Amino acid sequence: MTGIDIPVPAAGAGTTRIDDLPVREELRGKSPYGAPQLDVPVRLNTNENPYPLPEPLVERIAERVREVARNLNRYPDRDAVELRTALADYLNATGPDSAPELGAAHVWAANGSNEVIQQLLQTFGGPGRTALGFEPSYSMHSLIARGTGTAWVSGPRADDFTLDPETAVRAIAEHRPDVVFVTTPNNPTGNAVPAETVLALYEAAQRAKPSMVIVDEAYVEFSHGTSLLPLLAGRPHLVLSRTMSKAFGAAGLRLGYLAADPAVVDAVQLVRLPYHLSAVTQATALAALEHTDTLLKYVEQLKAERDRLVAELRTIGYEVTESDANFVQFGRFPEPGGARAAWRQILTRGVLVRDNGVPGWLRVSAGTPQENDAFLDAVRDLKKEQEQHG
């Protein structure tokens, strides 16, 4: 066989950048979503549930996975009917009494709430269409919009990071988006959006287009109030997005889901990839749903720790945004550069928090009592240093 001469790359080859590739114009100069995972004693930067899954649940997961492992030569249930039924049962059991009764037809599940959002934007957004969100908020909304070719419009928040209904309604009327995002409790600020405000935005969105309104309830189990599930009745353009990453302590599972009118569930199946949820994922999620009562007890502990963080931070002298989530936004640090400098100083004390890019503010996840003590000691030291050099 005759050899083939393969040209040798010139010196300096292998330094190609993303922008050297023929990527879509709206992706040029952008950075992927990410949070630093540094090797430090206390990591409170990604809103994870700090408590490992209880041993009985771990054993039940092993049992369920062992059962499906015998048939991994076959595709999983493409429509995940058993899982969707169990998720609907969970929503019916934990939602307000005024919420409509849900079944599998009202629920869709995917690989994390990010895939749920992606499928919704693939279905209702796309080239020539626009999504609107009120920032600062969950940055993946705009990133997924960009990835699906959907134009993004940033709507306003008040100085205290709440949504002013009149201002938000004007933004919807002005931009007439195809998709409106409302995040409650909001990430990274932690504050919840009242049901009356969401209802006003939904009605405005229907007058303007009509549009789909996606309510991201990733942290709703930690809220002082209740879910917006009752608003689904009679509102086919409303979608509630949820996750098992936070309250269920299953961030590594990657399971998100939505509740909506059955027509929405039918619509997202037009864009979903075939057999997108593995048999192992479905089995693990079903096992977790069998232990809801135990897992929600951890939620109550985290809510108490969150409230302790709020009170202690204010006592130390920091400003704190009202939080209905499992994290707290605190500040204010002098800008420019104050929040980043504070982040580094806290890190030198072995505690990793999140710099979300909101000028003057940082975010800390509620951890175990011991982790929260370490964080509070770090910010007390930081406050003393600031006062000494102020």
Rank of each mutant, 00 (worst) to 15 (best):
A168Y: 03
E217S: 11
V182D: 07
E221T: 04
V193N: 05
F181C: 10
N186R: 13
A171G: 11
V182Y: 05
F161S: 05
P185W: 00
V182P: 05
S223F: 03
V179F: 09
P177Y: 07
D160V: 12
D164K: 03
Q206N: 13
V182A: 13
Q206D: 11
A218V: 11
A168I: 03
L163N: 04
V182H: 06
P185S: 05
P188A: 04
F161M: 07
H224C: 06
T197A: 05
V179S: 08
V220M: 14
D216N: 15
V180S: 02
G190L: 02
F161A: 00
V182S: 08
T184Q: 05
N187S: 11
A218G: 02
S223N: 07
A205L: 09
V180F: 10
E217D: 04
T183I: 10
P194G: 12
D160P: 10
A205R: 09
A168S: 15
D178Q: 14
V213M: 10
V198Y: 00
T197P: 06
E196A: 15
V220F: 05
E174G: 04
K209L: 01
E166C: 02
D178W: 07
A218R: 02
V180Q: 09
E203Q: 14
H175S: 14
A208R: 08
D216E: 14
E166S: 15
D159Q: 13
V193I: 15
G190C: 04
T189I: 03
V169D: 08
R207V: 10
K209Q: 13
D216S: 14
D160Q: 11
S211L: 07
P177R: 05
A192M: 05
E203G: 05
P194L: 06
A173E: 15
N186P: 01
V169R: 14
P210L: 09
A200N: 03
E203H: 13
V220H: 00
V169T: 14
D160K: 12
A208D: 06
D178P: 04
R207E: 15
Y202N: 01
T189E: 01
N191R: 13
D160L: 11
N187D: 10
E196F: 03
V198S: 02
N187W: 09
E196W: 08
H224W: 13
A192Q: 06
E221F: 09
P188N: 08
R170P: 00
K209C: 10
E174V: 11
D216K: 07
A204E: 02
V179A: 12
F161C: 08
V213G: 00
H224G: 15
P188M: 04
